[in-house]
Structure formats: C-alpha cells, structure tokens
Nucleic acid binder design. Structure first.
Lengths: 116, 116
DNA sequence: TCAATATATTGACAGTTGTCGATATATGCG
DNA sequence: CGCATATATCGACAACTGTCAATATATTGA
C-alpha cells in the first residue's frame, strides 16, 4: 500500500520569476514524476475525463468499464493508481464505489509541469 | 523513428465551459498520454528543469550527464524521448548538441491536464 | 589523414506495467 | 442464512522501459 504522498504540501508559492528559478533537485523530480506517471496511460486519461464529465462530477466503476472496453479488474487497478496519486477520491455508497476528481488536483498536477 | 506528432495542432480553443465539456475520446486520450508519458520519469523531469534553468535556456549533453549521475547514452536516450514528445528541440553547434525547451510546450502539456 | 572529443545508436538485461482470469470481499435483498 | 451484484485483490504473463557497455558517427584540430 503505497498510499499517496501525492502532493507534498506547501510548495505553492514560487521563490522567484520562472526565468530565474534554479533547476529542481532529485527529490522534487521524483515526487513530481510519481504524480505525473498517473497521466502516462491513455485509459487513465479517459478515466479522469469521464469521471470529471460525469453527472455530479462522479462515476462508479460500473459506468467506467464499458466505455473503456476493459475488464473490471483492470479498471479498478487504474482507479487505484489515480487515487494513490491523489487525483481521484473514492466514496463508497452501498454496493457502489463512486469516484470523483479531487478538487484542484488537476491544476496542481499541471503546475508541476509549468513550474519546471 | 516515431517522430513527434507531439501536439496535434488546433484544439487550442475550448468548445464550452469545463464543467459542461464531454469526456475526451480514445484518440485524444492516446495522443495526450503520448506527450504526458515524457514526464513520467524523474530523470526526464530533471532534464527539462536543468535545460530550462540553463544559461540562455539551453544546455548541451555534456552539461547534463554529470548532475544526473547517468551514463551519456542514457541521457541521450531521455533527450530523444523529450524531443520526440515535442518538448525539447535540438540544435547542433560544432561538436556539441544544445537542447532547449520548445516555446510554449510546457504550457500546452499542462493544458492537456487542466482541460481534461 | 589521423587522433581526440562529443553525441548517437545498438544490443542486452532487469525491473516495471498493463492486462486478464480467477477469486475474495463486501453489501443488499429474499 | 443464502444468493446476486459490485468492487477489490491476486497471480500470471507479455510488452514496455530505463540502464549500461560497446560501438558507430560526426566534427574539430594537428
């Protein structure tokens, strides 16, 4: 259970102008890559997109397995990766598990790229 | 040579508000993942960062192999992946190869995430 | 032309990842 | 309780990826 360090906290404000900022160190690169790795698969991209576009910004596994044309275990696997990366959150209601995008998570992930 | 489709062109303006946008299709997800995959490795993150922070926004391979503690072939390999993804461009001057970030590429890559 | 340097390419190998089928674990309902 | 449904976990396997050593390909300079 490598449960989500996800977004290291703090680190929101920038020390100086982008053109003057020094290169990031190995530790930051590793944690950034850990999050960005979650976007490195087409099916996970689609999962994020479908969940975000879903009614109420959420979707359950049963809504996701068909449009992706993947087996249910594989979908669960990808969802776990997205949750561990801090991008999705899981809420169980009855028999169903509803996934939704963690507020601000996509923007923070995008900032990892623009703030390089 | 799977030379960079990179950023598919067009697709810059959005059809509607983010909350109303439908989920992206498989083809878009695949091309987005192709670019984002380039960010899925800590050493490539550092390469981008070091190049961007370098003098004149560029760096040659010889400047990159030492701080990353990687062999020269491995650095060349990662640089090729970043070039193929449309993130870096290569300019050969004499014996040296200078790499620099393609203008706007990081912002476009980040937009692939926020526009999900 | 020949040697030295910088970079790219190749081939190999271990480690990781995406996928599936089978199975386990809930949860709700008769 | 016992069955059906929804989801998660496990084990296996092929495909992909990151790394290195060895080698190839410029390019410069003597």
């Amino acid at each position: 259970m490598d449960t989500a360090l996800a977004f290291p906290a703090g680190e929101d404000q920038l020390c100086c102008a982008p053109s003057e900022r020094p290169a990031i160190d190995a530790a930051h690169a590793t944690s950034a890559a850990q999050v960005l790795k979650a976007f490195a698969d087409p099916n996970r991209i689609r999962l994020l997109s479908i969940v975000k576009a879903g009614d109420g910004g959420e979707a359950c596994v049963c809504d996701l397995t068909e449009p992706l044309d993947l087996g249910q275990p594989t979908v669960s696997h990808h969802l776990k990766i997205l949750v561990d990366a801090g991008l999705l959150k899981r809420e169980k209601r009855g028999t169903w598990a509803y996934y939704s995008v963690v507020p601000g998570a996509l923007e923070r992930a995008a900032a990892l790229i623009t703030n390089l």
